[in-house]
Amino acid sequence: MNNHRKLFVQNLLAYAVQRDVSAQLLCSLSGIDMELLQKSGEFEPTPKQMNDLWVNACHVSNDQLFGLHFGESLQLTALGVVGDIIKSSSTIGEAVTLSTKLTHLLTDLFHIDLARTNETFTMHFIPHASEKEKPSFSFLQTIDFFMVFVIHEMNGLLLTKLKPVSVCFPHTVSDINEYERVLRCRPVKKPGEYSITFSNRLWDEPVITHNYELQTLLLKKINDELPSANRESYRSKVYNYLLTNSYLGLVSLEEIAANFNVSARWMQRKLKEEGVSYQQVADDIRKSLALYYLNAGNYPVKEISYLLGYNEISAFSRAFKRWTGTTPVGYQKGNKS
């Protein structure tokens, strides 16, 4: 998995070289060991190294829109397996769906949610928690890169020129005319929104490089690279772990992620792909345990509330009523009658 990010850094440096910027200089300024980067094997840039790399690339090239222009120049083949999977999709809809699921291989700064209506489909770039209040320089450059890359490389999958219906940013862009040229659409300011919207007519358009057999092999390769814990249903694994270890109390997302040897962000993404959040799984456990304790008949409601991690009985009562339609006391009375 680390090799995808290594490839991304290598491509960024290669683009910088085309802009007459020394790759060695950028690595030196950003604290990246260029020899290690060039060797075979894993390489995982730290968040600080990536932020410094973007900052220095913009400064040395004298281009504050470096990410935007990098995205315009890069081709899908430069992303290795990820690019090959997207190219081998059967339709634009499938290519977009797969690309949103593979984003985490390239960055931890955001994920992409896909929304469709009868008229359009929209790719929403959702910042992770640490980037929502005060986005890092790296985040802003990476968002620019991905937005233009999506547009230009989707275009390479078709025989017609692609143009978005709309592009939204939560801030005013620095050079709106250049953004309009590269994104093929004049960006608009919309609070809290990084998104690209396309006509739904594109969804079923066939991809000219479609290769089902190749895609199947490549998806298997990607799956084989993931930790084994990630290949099974995370919902059931998390549920079973919480239930089996309920005597320890309900642990935090960070603690259970550490138990599975993955990051909390990774776990959040995997659960979201399965249509559930960690909070929902934890609530399912709380409901099961609450019913167990109440049915046992020898646990006071106050003690059950404490066992389930609620600081106040009122909070537990509200949650229980949401789950069952009645209060814990009402449930106990119903069982006695």
Rank of each mutant, 00 (worst) to 15 (best):
F8R: 06
Q10E: 14
A14C: 04
A14K: 12
A16F: 10
R19H: 13
R19M: 13
L25D: 11
S28L: 08
Q38C: 05
N62G: 00
Q64T: 02
Q75V: 06
G93C: 11
A95F: 11
T97Y: 11
T103M: 15
H104D: 13
L106N: 06
F110C: 09
I126S: 03
P135N: 09
F137P: 04
I143L: 14
F145W: 12
F149D: 07
H152R: 09
V165R: 02
C168K: 13
V173S: 05
N177A: 05
C185I: 07
C185L: 01
C185G: 03
G192F: 11
T197F: 07
S199H: 02
V207E: 00
T209S: 15
E213S: 11
E213K: 11
L218E: 03
L219F: 04
S228F: 08
A229S: 14
E232T: 10
V238Y: 01
Y241A: 00
L243V: 09
T244H: 02
L248K: 13
E254W: 01
E255P: 01
A258D: 11
S263H: 05
M267K: 06
Q268L: 13
K272T: 06
E274T: 03
S277E: 01
K287M: 01
Y299G: 02
Y299S: 12
P300Q: 14
V301Y: 02
E303K: 13
I304M: 02
S305T: 01
N311L: 12
E312K: 15
I313K: 13
R318D: 15
W323V: 08
P328H: 05
G330R: 13
K333Y: 07
G334T: 03
N335A: 10
